[in-house]
Design a binder for these strands. Structure first.
Lengths: 222, 222
DNA sequence: ACACTGAATGAATGCTCATTCACTTACGAC
DNA sequence: GTCGTAAGTGAATGAGCATTCATTCAGTGT
């Protein structure tokens, strides 16, 4: 039995776990502060204080402020992608899968409104390489929706549309809950917002002969 | 004849004109630089250089950096409002007025893409009072669209919808050309983007019996 | 116990930048 | 021409901040 290897493995695992925890702790503090005040208005000292740690330590985990900001945004987008994937589940009907994916996006945005805005506000100040990563991630996140729309078109359930454009329209609608919360927030409840936009989007593309299968999704537009 | 008053009036007018010109010159330089690099990355020195004046002069025209930023965003939104109002013209058919207003928004956003993004990115760093002003301006800009949708509903041309939500959906779609230009820019021409979204939005809400009046706007969804 | 390794600290460094102000220049009134 | 007022200048000030690094601390193997 390789006792030595086992010990080193165990300690290494413990080490990695602690490192990961620290990293997450720093990211969480940075995300909270940057979402609230904007990255340029948050000093490294403030992040350190927020995490209950000294400034110097941040530099053991991140290359610098730029790197920290990028890591914050990446972690936000990754959590979005994960949650959206979960939300869709295994709905077989492509049209209902569109609705489920859209609702998933909307709910994630609703829960992480400030974080979503952070990504919009601060992306510009990243280096080109960092921006590319974020764009890739976002396109990834949109993939389930694109797939569902493609399936619906292929199955003849909806009229032919420009798939990437239609799918991104839905994505942007979800984002708009965060971007224009000051407007929508006082005019409509989130659940109604989701229902209304689901109905609008589907009403635009459903074929007349398939509309009556989805009256539950069309609401007053049925 | 009040010669003295006339002279003072004339010189005062000339004075005001020069002051206005300077102000615009400074705003233009600031807008260009801030749109490109983001307000926090643009020093007052850089704005001064960009406008070909000295730093100190900026403080004769604006209270400080914060004030300058706010003035830049306000001027951008005001130019948007003006251009949109022009674009709509006097189309009598409410449905076609919706289409015209939407196209107007889209064109303005297309022409001033960077400026539009500036408003999104930097609003957070304004004081609450400044933000309120910007929100008012944006709602003003949306008014023609809200009015057109209201008319269309009242005239029974489209199904009843949540008017402010539907109108803002269109506004956000126009904005999304700027927000996601990295995505749409390589996938669809601007004119096609406008046509596709006009068709989608109208297809969602037009009554079956009125659809055939607007086949030109519905394109492939007719 | 002891030495060793890496985690953690926080004061010191050096830079950038907004803002000020003592001074200069341009210009209209007389 | 010359006086007064307003426009314009740019070096100096001082605050804030990212980043570094000499030092301390804590845990682990022997």
């Amino acid at each position: 039995m390789p006792t030595i290897d086992a010990t080193t493995d165990a300690t290494e695992a413990a080490h990695d776990a602690r490192t990961e925890a620290r990293r997450r702790q720093l990211l969480a503090a940075a995300a909270r502060l940057m979402a609230e005040h904007g990255s340029p208005n948050v000093s490294m000292q403030a992040v350190a204080d927020g995490a209950g740690v000294s400034v110097g330590l941040i530099y053991r985990y991140f290359g610098g402020k730029q790197d920290l900001l990028q890591a914050v945004i990446v972690s936000v987008l990754e959590s979005f992608a994960t949650r959206v994937a979960e939300a869709i589940g295994d709905e077989p009907d492509p049209v209902r899968r569109i609705a489920a994916a859209f609702a998933g996006y909307c709910d994630v945005i609703h829960d992480e409104r400030e974080a979503a805005l952070l990504a919009y506000r601060e992306t510009k100040s990243l280096d080109p390489e960092g921006r590319r990563v974020l764009m890739d991630l976002e396109v990834q996140t949109a993939q389930p929706l694109v797939a569902a729309v493609t399936d619906a078109v292929d199955a003849g359930l909806i009229r032919p549309v420009n798939v990437p454009v239609f799918a991104y329209q839905l994505l942007m609608t979800a984002h708009s809950w965060a971007l224009k919360h000051w407007y929508f927030g006082t005019r409509i409840a989130h659940a109604d917002f989701v229902a209304e936009h689901t109905a609008l989007a589907l009403s635009a593309v459903l074929r007349p002969e398939t509309r009556n299968h989805y009256t539950d999704l069309l609401g007053t537009l049925a």
